Amino acid sequence: MTVTRGDEDTDMGACSGSGPGSGAEPGNRPEDEPGSGVLIAFGQQLKLLRLRAGLDRTEFGKRVGYAAQSIASFEQGRRIPQPEFIDKADAVLDAGGLLIALKKEVERAQYPPFFRDAAQLEKKAVALSVYGVYAIPGLLQTAEYARAVFQMRRPLLDDDAIERGLSGRLARQEIYDRHPTPLLSFVVEEEALRRPVGGRAVLLGQLEQLLLIGRKRNVEIQVMPTDREDHGALGGPFTLIDTVQGQRIAYAEAQGDSRLYTGQAKVRQLEARYGIIRSQALTPRESSEFVQKLLGEK
């Protein structure tokens, strides 16, 4: 990921997550492979501690509430363990915090490198403003819709990468249960609502989820109709992230590349665009009625 301050680009190295918009897909670079980096290190440490405790995978799995196949996947770096598993494993194996010390980095590994920094900002944001163009934004996606998005990725992703991407995307939706509750605004293109990603049944479930999420007091979902002659943001999807420190950061991604903008000039430009498209889009009430009408057409 590149963080841009003013006119200067500073390379920040790999970052993790599925993008705030339609959600970046897990990449196919070497560092994106499921059996790499921190996951391999965690898996090796887990196996050594299990063997030291004299437990086979079946017995250890019983003690932590996971199947032996899942333990094997964790040890081989093919699957990302949940925080609850790490806590239980550390206690059962008397690891003294060795596994817990890796928990934050394991969590970051849920996401492709180019989104990790943005994912951390999103997780702690007090407000998000998301413009979705090509697909329903990741924070609004059902599991079935998200899985279809990952399955359509070209070059094809293997099953482990799809599961990792799906797990990371759904984990991001814990933002709806956070306290204090963040303010979430979405403007979504009509075409994204009509595109039958995953098939008709999946799209129906996705439209129903939009209505459910849109009823939350902290969420506003607006539809940008295709027939609008004026459109203030034809440059592609982006997200505005308000931090607890009072800073506003902009995030944009395209074709697996992404940037975080902190420079005032660029952030203000995208702020202005978002304000314009909100005024051009249907209101939240009109948008809800529009989605209900789409459901009736399907």
Rank of each mutant, 00 (worst) to 15 (best):
S70R: 10
S70L: 13
S73C: 02
F74G: 03
F74I: 05
E75I: 03
E75L: 08
Q76H: 13
Q76Y: 12
G77M: 14
R78L: 13
R79E: 09
R79V: 04
R79F: 09
R79W: 03
R79Y: 04
Q82N: 06
Q82E: 07
P83N: 07
E84R: 11
E84V: 14
F85M: 02
F85T: 02
F85H: 04
D87C: 05
D87K: 14
K88S: 07
K88I: 04
K88C: 04
K88R: 05
A89T: 03
A89D: 01
A91W: 03
V92P: 04
L93H: 09
L93I: 15
L93Q: 11
D94C: 06
A95G: 15
G96F: 08
G97I: 05
L99T: 02
I100T: 15
A101N: 11
L102N: 01
L102K: 07
K103R: 12
K104R: 14
E105Y: 12
E105D: 15
V106M: 08
V106H: 01
V106N: 01
E107M: 10
E107A: 12
Q110L: 15
Q110V: 05
Q110M: 14
Q110R: 10
Y111E: 09
Y111A: 14
P112M: 09
P113A: 10
P113I: 08
F114V: 11
F115D: 11
F115Q: 13
R116D: 12
R116K: 14
Q120L: 10
Q120M: 15
Q120A: 11
Q120H: 10
L121G: 04
L121W: 08
L121T: 05
E122L: 06
E122N: 07
K124H: 10
K124S: 15
K124Y: 14
A125P: 01
A125I: 03
V126I: 15
V126L: 10
A127E: 05
A127H: 05
L128H: 03
L128E: 03
V130D: 02
V130S: 02
Y131A: 12
G132T: 14
G132R: 09
V133T: 10
V133F: 08
Y134L: 15
P137Y: 06
P137K: 07
G138Y: 00
G138V: 01
G138S: 09
L139G: 01
L140I: 05
L140Q: 02
Q141F: 00
T142N: 06
T142R: 02
A143C: 11
E144F: 06
E144H: 11
A146F: 00
R147M: 01
A148F: 03
F150G: 00
Q151G: 05
Q151S: 13
M152H: 08
M152L: 09
M152T: 03
R153A: 00
